[in-house]
Amino acid sequence: MIEVDEVVKSFTLRRRAGLLRRSRTRVDAVDRISFTVAAGEFVGYLGPNGAGKSTTIKMLTGILTPSSGRVRVAGLDPSRQRTALARRVGVVFGQRTTLWWDLPLRDSLTLVRHLYRVERSVHRTRLAELTELLDLGSFLDTPVRQLSLGQRMRGDLAAALVHDPELLVLDEPTIGLDVISKATVRAFLTRLNEEQGTTILLTTHDLGDVERLCRRVMVIDHGRLAYDGSLPELRGALDADRILVVDLARPAPPIEVEGARTVRTDGPRQWLAIPSGGNAAAVVVAVAARHEVEDVSLREPDIEDLITRLYRTGVPVEHSGGRVASDRQQ
């Protein structure tokens, strides 16, 4: 569905260098990135502000032309075949609406139908499906300006899917949403991907979205791909500790057992760090043999901590037969 091969996108910055002179500096917003996304995948595309995420998205959708390299989306060249590509791709920008501000949502979706030249009967069926899946019924006839942020986001998702695209590109789709609205959007996207096979590329700063939705994660930093793989692979590659939380019957000195180290105590509760690859079950058995235990729980490394650590240190990771390394290592 997506092919990106050695793509570079450069910009020229002009700065004042004197009274009448200006200097020019070349900045590579995207620097020799290569990856593929197969049809039906749900991929998270992460990175700090300024890393190159939005630039990549704009090249995939034909808004920007690569300085060098090759981009293909659904077999098309995005910058040269934008009209043909628009019929096969849906795009949602969380901070920008594609709806008409003064029109009821229903009328906005009708205008979108005309833009994509969707047959009336097909649109009627599609709108009924989207209304049910996104729970649009209560505000279809409400002007867009009067919708809450969560309602507007669901309307934008519907607008992006009116023409039943093969690929859905989402840029911060849950930004600013409340817990209930986030849950609604996440459930819809999961269903769209699993039941209809829609390929989804998600960029977000909400790592909760990534944990709940994405089976694969790509991390971009300083214009280069720092990681491409699954979250479990990322945890293993960074040798991140798992945390065993132990509630004892009564307060005790820090627990000492093989295969773990105590990193925190608070009365009868203690936190034990278990290195990546360590045997958590063996640690639990060893603790229970020496102490009276009331409860235990095992916590996986927090994704936010993992991503932060990746930005800071970088780590080469094997994925799908290829090798991807961070900016510092390349």
Rank of each mutant, 00 (worst) to 15 (best):
V4P: 01
T12W: 08
T12P: 05
L13G: 00
L19H: 07
T25C: 03
R26L: 06
V27Q: 00
V30Q: 13
V30P: 10
T36C: 11
T36D: 15
V37Y: 10
A39I: 10
V43G: 02
Y45G: 05
G50A: 09
A51R: 00
I57K: 04
M59V: 03
G62A: 02
I63M: 06
G69Q: 10
R70K: 13
A74G: 05
S79K: 01
R80D: 01
R82D: 07
V89M: 06
G90T: 07
G90P: 11
G90W: 04
T98A: 15
W100N: 09
D102G: 06
L103P: 07
P104Q: 10
P104D: 15
R106I: 14
R106Q: 11
R106L: 11
T110N: 13
T110R: 12
L115M: 04
V122Q: 08
R124C: 11
R124F: 15
T125V: 13
T131N: 03
F139T: 01
F139V: 00
V144L: 02
S148C: 02
L149A: 08
R154K: 14
D156T: 01
D156Q: 00
L157S: 06
A158S: 02
L161E: 09
H163F: 08
P165M: 09
E166N: 05
L167Y: 02
E172A: 03
P173N: 03
D178E: 06
V179H: 08
A183N: 05
F188I: 04
L189A: 11
N193G: 09
E195F: 07
T198H: 14
T198W: 09
T204F: 13
R216D: 01
V219C: 05
V219A: 11
I220C: 04
H222G: 10
G223Y: 11
L225K: 09
Y227M: 14
D228A: 12
D239F: 01
D239A: 06
D241P: 00
R242H: 09
I243K: 03
D247K: 07
A252M: 09
E256D: 15
E258C: 02
G259L: 13
A260K: 00
T262R: 02
V263K: 05
G267L: 08
A273D: 01
S276A: 14
G277E: 04
G278M: 08
N279G: 07
A280T: 14
A282K: 15
H291D: 00
V293F: 09
S297E: 14
P301E: 03
R309P: 07
R309K: 15
G314L: 07
V317D: 07
H319C: 00
G321D: 11
G322D: 08
G322C: 06
A325P: 00
R328K: 06
R328Y: 14
R328Q: 12
Q329I: 08
Q330A: 09
